[in-house]
Design a protein around this nucleic acid. Structure first.
Lengths: 222, 222
DNA sequence: CGGTTCCCTGATGGATCGTCAGGTCTCGTT
DNA sequence: AACGAGACCTGACGATCCATCAGGGAACCG
């Protein structure tokens, strides 16, 4: 199956037809309202009837485009995954040596914080569903994070060739660092609630990423 | 209000009375079944009627002891929080210098992995609810993790008095490390799915914790 | 303007929710 | 052992949501 055919299949309505202009607009409206509901109410409390009402349509229409609420969220999650490409690029295109390397680590930390702030409502559902063993959502999570992990592992492997940062398996090390980035990004609001300053946390994370990637002590002046 | 009075209040049924022997047994049965449902079905799909059926009683009985499903899970979460004390003890009672220090880091990593494996179904709901801004659940999460963070921050501060591991704010640094521990513990199953060996991840985490706490390079031979 | 395809909805049977009033069980008292 | 008095549980109910039809409008084309 071509990629394009797969894309069409995703749009396909429940009765098998491929929606036209009006249909796609309705579908998008439903997606927007789903995102809105996700932002304003708890995941558990979201009802398709609420989404439909918000979109000015009936529940039956919702079911024409999505099998259930999770299917709609899955689409939102895929849009998010596409946006995640920018995280990968930061790792790939940044330099990792010296002070510039530390700046790359800082930039990556900021990018994670920003990414999570932007996609938090979707990400928390992705996390939950992944943890509950839902394959479709796990694949999304992998698509975003695994790409970053691979790229970072490549950087680590290069340092290891030079005899630095030895004693760790590059993928495992990269996975650990990405876990740190993701977890802090997910919970930094909670950190602030405890009285942490986000900037202090940001520095700690960036230093950890720099050290964990290069095996070298971060620049003293931050 | 005394602590005991607060405990009694938690048990109090919806009509204000304090349950006796039979009532407490029923309540416990409902809690057990809630935990079981949490293990076997998705959070979103849990219905009070299912819990009641599983417990061999009627929905009305459930509502006599809990306002809703979340209230029951909250009780499970509090039991979990009590168990979290063992993580704090590991940090407090372990030594953090030299190879023994690295062994403490490894032990802490293992303890987190074990803790998450044991309490995963509850923890994922705590995480979600916390992220959604539910204060009651956030307090639980704080109770478990903040205690570990404080203890670890105290260790970091001691190293800083000796001129080591400078340039970071102890609480922020400890928070970052605990985020790493928690995140890896939460997702190590996913790591394995990608083909990582848990043992490699374990080493990476322990080394990161050791470095982040002491400011020193971990022992070469692991 | 008529026909065809696309899109939407009212209606519906089934399930769950949350809450009573009232029945059943337990246990201490006599 | 019989008897209350609470303690405990449940049947029943109106409200809501689910998920799915068949059929009524809307848009587009010739």
């Amino acid at each position: 199956m071509t990629e394009q055919a797969a894309e069409v299949d995703q749009l396909r309505a429940s009765d098998g037809r491929v929606p036209g202009r009006r249909g796609r607009a309705t579908r998008q409206r439903l997606l927007d309202c789903t995102a809105e509901m996700l932002r304003t109410t708890s995941y558990r409390a979201i009802k398709v009837i609420d989404i439909a009402r918000e979109a000015g349509t009936s529940p039956a229409t919702f079911y024409q485009y999505f099998a259930d609420v999770e299917a709609a969220i899955l689409v939102l999650a895929e849009e998010m995954a596409a946006d995640g490409e920018r995280l990968v690029q930061l790792v790939r295109e940044g330099t990792w040596r010296g002070k510039a390397g530390y700046r790359t680590a800082l930039a990556l930390t900021d990018a994670f914080l920003e990414f999570w702030d932007e996609h938090r409502p979707v990400l928390r559902v992705v996390d939950l569903a992944t943890d509950e063993g839902d394959h479709r959502f796990r694949n999304i999570r992998v698509k975003v994070l695994n790409a970053v992990v691979r790229e970072l592992a490549a950087v680590i492997a290069r340092f290891q060739e030079e005899g630095r940062n030895t004693g760790v398996e590059p993928m495992a090390q990269a996975g650990t660092l990405v876990a740190t980035l993701a977890s802090v990004a997910a919970h930094h609001a909670g950190f602030e609630y405890w009285g942490f300053r986000t900037d202090d946390v940001r520095v700690s994370v960036a230093r950890t990423v720099y050290w964990g990637t290069t095996g070298q002590r971060p620049p003293a002046d931050g």
